[in-house]
């Protein structure tokens, strides 16, 4: 006859549950998207909204990387194309493209991306520091890298992106 008591079993189960809680680690919400063949991400708290469709009003006198403005429930936001800033080929707005409404560095703007891949919570530890092999123009823009669905993803610094764009880069 077993000497184990019900009380011991319950204590053991409670301890097990506590351990599960204890191994939880801080998660980071990321909005993962494609620009051309490459995957990038912004921190979720920087993205207010994802717009699958929006009428973009062209404004003259702007660089080609500034697509125009959109009307978001009565407010006007610019829409930028970050391809040039990241030294990527810009194939124009495709069928799967979306606009991410981002806020950073005290500024807000729409950001045209070629496809939104996913919005996910990932463990903080899965984001690694940027590798030393990163191209020069990316070093100040990339906060970290991770793998998602077997693809490398660079997490971008939206504050720096907007600041660089306002300074005339891209």
């Amino acid at each position: 006859m077993s000497e184990t008591t019900l009380e011991q079993v319950l204590i053991q189960r409670r301890e097990a549950n506590k351990e599960i809680v204890n191994v939880d680690e801080p998660a980071v919400k990321l909005v993962i998207f494609e620009l051309g063949e490459q995957c990038f991400a912004f921190h979720g708290e920087r993205i207010r909204e994802i717009l699958a469709q929006a009428d973009v009003f062209f404004v003259p006198g702007c660089p080609p990387s500034l697509e125009g403005v959109i009307n978001v429930r009565g407010d006007i936001e610019s829409v930028i194309r970050p391809h040039e800033l990241l030294h990527l080929p810009d194939g124009g707005a495709g069928r799967n493209s979306s606009i991410l409404l981002g806020r950073g560095g005290g500024m807000s703007s729409g950001i045209r991306v070629d496809r939104v891949v996913d919005v996910v919570d990932v463990p903080h530890s899965s984001i690694q520091p940027p590798p030393a092999t990163l191209p020069e123009h990316m070093r100040t823009l990339v906060l970290g890298v991770l793998r998602f669905q077997e693809r490398p993803v660079a997490v971008l610094d939206l504050d720096k992106m907007f600041a660089d764009y306002a300074r005339g880069l891209g």
Binding site: P63, E77, S108, S109, Y165, G168
Partner: peptide, 10 residues
Amino acid sequence: PPLLAARTRL
């Protein structure tokens, strides 16, 4: 919008 204000040539 701030980025447009920064980049417009008008």
